[in-house]
Design a protein around this nucleic acid. Structure first.
Lengths: 229, 229
DNA sequence: GTCCTACGGATTGTATGCATGATACACTTT
DNA sequence: AAAGTGTATCATGCATACAATCCGTAGGAC
């Protein structure tokens, strides 16, 4: 197993080891390398990546705070199992929060905002269906821009956290990101915002999220997440 | 300065030292013992309370994640300064989220829920005005119960985070917690839920939060938070 | 007088050793 | 054979030592 880079000053982004371990661990949970139910032992991660337990410990705590792993006191942490109920709840919240954000965005948008939004949309439409990971990132950025347009930093923070919490299930909707309905919904949202129509913007956003909520719910029911233990 | 209790098995609630340090530190930030802008140095806290830096470090990280302190890389953490804008944004979100929660609570409440809610309200009304910290905790618990009644775990999580983020400004409304208007609003919320009237419940909750939003905004404008450095 | 550099102090970031608590399994007892 | 108990084992919780980094400051060059 390869080591975590230590004193590489050229890559300034993730400076501390703790940060690197956090990002890598998070990636493995989100992409499914670490299945739900698996125990994460500090010593194992530390020796596998040639770091000490301290930064691993910190990274694990952050994951617990993010809701990606659950900790048993004095026993360790394990990757959380996403229940259909939890996914449903999160999508319900996203509908409320992002619906409101879209409304506010329609009220406040200026021409440069709309321009940036159209650019993002064009970027999404241009992505080939063969790169689901890029699609997921682009979609997240698209939603992020709209929420940011609402001008409420705390709202942006919350929706980002919500997004991270269910990011793992987005993988099962990867084929849906490119179909005609999704594109139409994206365009409807953007046009409502561009037309400064708050009602239509909120309606379009809520419908968009509701569509995905139902798709995810149905597929999770058919084939639950793979689990270990 | 008194020590943090270590192996006292009689008090089982806050088991780990890290947890005790976290709760105590959080209390000091919320009650204003630690002013905005003050640097929190791990070593100082550790030696003052006779523990090692490790649990202090963990506690401080959790505070950072809660948004109560901000960290400069390799420099330390300091108590955050709350801007009026940020407070406004958070209260706006609370109005949306808790208003919705109250609506759902009114739809779903059974008799035992209502009973528990009334018990909490009685507890709040019985608290002496001389203990603002206890009041803040009790008020938080009250809101928490209502949100929990909505039956959306993710919603509970989010509102708890939001609450923690502005809990410090609640200190400047400590006299308001005990006045007649606040009590009346609390009772209005509970009665609307008890009567299974979703519309009234949401309206009452939004009005309650809006009232505090305005009080906090006005007072913050008059006299900004005390700062050090 | 101003700017650049090098050094020193202080604080966080990391590593490691030891203590504590929990669980699993085997052994005893009924 | 089943239930209860004791012990071995292992992972976390905590303490402490060491390394890396940042900021301020003093000193010198121009």
């Amino acid at each position: 197993m390869e080591e975590v880079s230590r004193n590489v000053k050229t890559q300034s982004a993730p400076k501390t080891i703790s940060q690197q371990v956090y990002e890598r661990l998070r990636d493995e949970v989100l992409t499914g390398s670490l299945h739900p139910g698996v125990w994460i032992r500090e010593h194992d991660i530390a020796s596998a990546w040639s770091v000490s337990r301290t930064p691993v410990r910190e990274a694990v705590r952050r994951l617990a705070h993010d809701g990606l792993v659950e900790s048993s006191p004095n026993r360790g942490v394990r990757v959380r199992v996403l229940t259909p109920q939890e996914v449903h709840d999160v999508y319900e919240l996203r509908e409320l929060l992002e619906g409101t954000a879209a409304r506010r965005a329609a009220e406040r948008a200026d021409t440069s905002d709309v321009e940036r939004l159209r650019a993002h949309l064009g970027h999404i439409d241009a992505l080939p269906a063969s790169e689901p990971a890029a699609h997921i990132r682009a979609d997240e950025a698209f939603h992020d821009v709209i929420v940011a347009m609402a001008g409420n930093e705390a709202l942006s923070d919350l929706t980002r956290r919500l997004y991270g919490r269910v990011a793992r299930v987005k993988v099962i909707t990867r084929d849906t990101n490119t179909n005609a309905q999704t594109r139409a919904q994206h365009h409807a949202i953007v046009e409502a915002i561009a037309a400064h129509d708050p009602e239509a913007a909120e309606r379009a956003m809520r419908e968009h999220i509701r569509t995905f909520k139902e798709i995810v719910a149905e597929r999770l029911q058919r084939e639950p997440e793979p689990q270990s233990d």
